[in-house]
Amino acid sequence: MNQIIELPGRAERAATDASVLLDCRNLSRTFIVGGSLFSKAKELRAVDRVNVSVRRGEVLAIVGESGSGKTTLGRMMLGILPPTSGEMLLDGKPVSGIDRKTLARRIQPIFQDPYSSLNPRKTVAQIIGLPLAVHGIEAGAARDRRVEEIMERVGLSRRLIHSYPNQLSGGQRQRVAIARALVVQPEIVVCDEPTSALDVSVQAQILNLLVDLRNEFNLTYIFISHDLGVVEYIADQLAVMYMGQVVEAGPRHEVLEQRRHPYTQALLGSVLTPDPSLGLPDLQIGRGFPDIMHPPSGCHFHPRCPSAMPVCSAVEPPAFRDSAGLVHCHLFSGEGSSATRPIAQ
């Protein structure tokens, strides 16, 4: 694991500034699906009692397969989707008590698809200037100057200022989205799979840009992704989600190294390699993603878990917490079995 590229300043920052900036407590979001005269509405638990927190200046990566609730969690953090229950604390104060505009200046998003995240009828200047207009920051020439400054900072040529999104490449579009997020100088940026819609070569540029900007503006990232290579590169903390719940969380190094939850093992084992002779990875968890409308009893992962025990289908696993982080699994509940559990490689 020593090949992991260390980010500049990571160690110092973790040592000096360890205050929790954003703290999600028992955050849940339920969607009501269907429901008409003849059929009863059903509840979909997209996010289920999630506890995650991120310290100032750190990068919290949230990983999980499609449908695990990552994006819903991100939208709640942005304040565009109210949580059904639970609360979020920003700097120790509940977010629900913070005015929407004030919150918007502190938390900003970067979305996955730069083709749908930019209004096709607006110029780059209007798109990046929108947050300034909404918050009444600067006007006229001063606003244009500010837009130009941030464009320069994210590596966009100034002559693109009056062009439309359809004239830009995917990487340029994502730079516009980054500029729009950073123009109000937020503290937290929620990056919802910011590189997954881009070419691999462009992904690297955008990731490096995000890392540079983080160091320059002392940003805190919530980095939602299913690309483990990217996560390994950028994250400080890691939370693994499965069916709306966090199954394992902790410092990136510990989670990637120890892989205590069987789902984490499967997820990390599913990474494709560039060498085709190795074939597809064998997951041993079956292919079927359970019906999210009817989550399995007990531990949601038990139907696919290679180490499932009778207790798994009956009792929801309690949280087990130690220096290496948090894990929700019966393998680690009771009798301190965690210390002796062999690490599957």
């Binding site: 939208r75 942005l78 304040g79 565009i80 929407r100 505009k101 919150l103 918007a104 200046r105 938390i107 900003q108 998003p109 979305f111 996955q112 698809d113 749908s116 995240s117 930019l118 209004n119 929108l130 947050p131 909404v134 918050h135 989205a177 729009r180 109000v184």
Partner: peptide, 12 residues
Amino acid sequence: QEFIAAAQAVGA
């Protein structure tokens, strides 16, 4: 579309 979500997240 995400540009609507972006505008909402900006506080518009």
